[in-house]
């Protein structure tokens, strides 16, 4: 059974979604936040205990004073991992969640049992333009985020009236806060990725138009020993568009790491 619970972390309210039993897996969400329509997480929860917080400012988590950028956010997550007693944990980072995980891993790789980077932001790749989700219309956003036709239904499920629409707007504002400039990356991150000493698996949608597959390939070159897989008929939101393959990639990788 999945459940949402709000915890108090040093005076800030953090909303955390949990589902499943077994080895804990910390899921760090991307630009779109979590909207309760992530079938990939439900799949993953068949094998693991999935712990998916809303980053400060996203979803039902409060904005936290002084948590303004990805570095602040990575320190915030160390506090949160301490509070959740996650001394060493498997981490899955999607989009800016992957970037966040990398920022943590270059300092505190020992806290990661493994790291799965799914369509991860964080680096820039020369001459490979990203898609800009901030400037585009809703229709273009759907086209950019999905390889197939699932985007229209997904968008309907996350927009509407009342709290749903408030959360949609909060997620967009929080996404801008953390990733507007430099857009979706830390230009100096590539300099330090050799320090990531946890087992890393990189998973990419073959039709990703926000962060084209060249970004996944570049990450593989920069992170020592990282494995790499692509998913067909999949764009940026693998956990929504290809939930089984998303969960399968991560489960098999975690098993390979021996836990």
């Amino acid at each position: 059974m999945a459940e949402n619970a709000v915890i108090d972390l040093r005076g800030s309210k953090v909303n955390i979604w949990r589902a499943g039993k077994g080895e804990p897996v910390l899921f760090l969400h991307g630009l779109q936040g979590r909207n309760g329509h992530e079938p990939g997480l439900d799949e993953l929860a068949k094998s693991f205990e999935v712990i998916a917080p809303d980053h400060p400012g996203f979803g039902r988590s409060e904005n936290v004073d002084g948590v303004d950028d990805i570095n602040d956010l990575s320190l915030f997550y160390l506090d949160l991992m301490d509070a959740l007693k996650l001394e060493r944990v498997h981490v899955v980072g999607q989009c800016i969640g992957g970037w966040l995980a990398l920022e943590m891993a270059i300092y505190w790789g020992q806290r990661f049992k493994s790291l799965s980077l799914v369509n991860s932001a964080g680096i820039r790749v020369k001459d490979v333009p990203r898609g800009d989700l901030f400037v585009c219309s809703e229709e273009d956003m759907i086209r950019m985020l999905f390889a197939g036709n699932g985007g229209v239904e997904w968008m309907k499920s996350i927009r509407g009236e009342g709290e749903l629409e408030d959360i949609y707007e909060r997620n967009r504002a929080a996404a801008a806060k953390y990733s507007w400039s430099p857009r979706l990356c830390n230009p100096k991150l590539d300099r330090w990725l050799h320090r990531v000493n946890a087992p890393v698996h990189i998973v990419w949608g073959e039709e990703n138009r926000v962060l084209p597959p060249a970004y996944g390939e570049a990450l593989k070159k920069l992170i020592p020993g990282a494995s790499h897989a692509t998913i067909a008929n999949c764009a940026h939101l693998a956990h929504i568009e290809q939930p089984q393959k998303f969960a399968q990639e991560i489960s098999q990788f975690i098993r390979r790491t021996g836990s």
């Binding site: 585009c136 408030d166 707007e169 967009r172 504002a173 801008a176 806060k177």
Partner: peptide, 17 residues
């Protein structure tokens, strides 16, 4: 101006939005 260009995320407070 498309709405997204006129009001990028976070530009307006929720009330003003």
């Amino acid at each position: 101006l498309p709405f997204e260009m006129l009001f990028p995320p976070g530009y307006l407070s929720p009330k003003s939005l």
